[in-house]
Design a protein around this nucleic acid. Structure first.
Length: 301
DNA sequence: GTCCAGGCTTTCC
DNA sequence: GGAAAGCCTGGA
């Protein structure tokens, strides 16, 4: 059994698993169901399985510990530690945001949320698909794309796992094929054109790691299908730009309901959120989104 | 330059 | 039948 202390985490290695000891601020349900990721599969034992960066991993909360199965210390340090944002102290973030009474309630509800650092290309395509769409259908489309164009990685708990395809896999496809096969509707041409632009280097998505949120948004919004909301999702969920504040229908409703008290444009809501939450805007948005959506706040009957 | 209405595929409730 | 983690286009 290898042992390791990283920051405030105590990590133990076992045979094909890693154990995070006494981990606060980490609840698989909150992390995987708060809307930032579309591919985590809930198993019968309440664990969650997914594939990322070419590896299949299973995550389960057992008492106060988190068990990561089908992995080892080497992958945990090189992939999962960053993927699960384990270098960040969410206790401090929650303490700071809890000064706002509404955030305090939202944080109480989604206490175990962490914001993942996911693969940029997968997130770009996933959130292009998410536009004016519904979650079950979004998940279906991403699953079909991976199965058809990705690489078979392996079997886990009876399920076959495929990697998300790289941009070149889309190059030879036609819009009609993509629309009909993956059920993505009018988003098909946007997916193809975005993939082409990234493949050909017309848009450099690697340089975004070192740029500001504003500079990054300007670049990403050159991609077809990527507007203000989708670009903020990409920056928050795969590039670690936590000052992004994605405004969708739910955030619009709950911000109007809790704060603004009147009909407000998305642009104004984004500016309001930025002013209110500053560098913690992205975290605030996730706590609020998860809370508001689960409670159905402001939903029309 | 900004702002806004209408259209877009298909599924889900 | 309306709404859905919005974006694009054209016109004011």
């Amino acid at each position: 059994m290898g042992k390791l202390n990283i920051n405030h985490y105590k990590i133990e290695e076992g045979k094909n698993f890693i154990k995070l000891i006494d981990s606060r601020d980490f609840n698989p349900k909150d992390i995987f169901e708060c809307g930032q990721a579309f591919r985590w599969k809930k198993e019968e034992d309440s664990s969650y399985t997914n594939i990322a960066y070419g590896k299949i991993i299973n995550v389960k909360k057992e008492g106060s510990n988190i068990i990561f199965r089908n992995t080892n210390m080497e992958d945990f340090k090189s992939i999962w530690f960053n993927y699960f944002d384990l270098s960040r102290d969410y206790g401090e973030i929650k303490k700071s945001l809890s000064k706002d009474p509404i955030l305090k309630k939202a944080i109480h509800y989604g206490d175990g949320i962490r914001i993942l650092n996911q693969d940029p290309f997968e997130i770009i395509i996933s959130f292009i698909i998410s536009a004016n769409n519904q979650i079950p259908r979004i998940k279906g489309s991403i699953g079909k794309i991976s199965q058809d164009l990705g690489e078979y990685i392996g079997l886990y708990m009876g399920e076959k796992y495929y990697s998300f395809p790289s941009p070149d896999k889309f190059l030879s496809l036609k819009g009609d094929y993509v629309r009909e096969k993956y059920k993505v509707g009018f988003r098909a041409d946007r997916i193809l054109e975005t993939s082409r632009m990234i493949y050909e280097g017309e848009i450099d998505i690697d340089c975004i790691y070192t740029l500001s949120r504003e500079e990054s948004k300007d670049i990403l919004m050159n991609l077809p299908g990527v507007g203000p909301k989708v670009s903020d999702c990409i920056l928050l969920f795969s590039y670690g730009k936590q000052n992004a504040f994605p405004v969708d229908v739910w955030v619009k409703r709950l911000m109007e309901y809790f704060y603004l008290k009147e009909d407000t444009s998305n642009k104004k809501i984004e500016e309001y959120g930025q002013k209110l939450f500053g560098d913690l805007s992205g975290f605030a948005q996730q706590y609020l989104f998860y809370y508001g959506r689960e409670l159905g706040i402001g939903r029309k009957k």
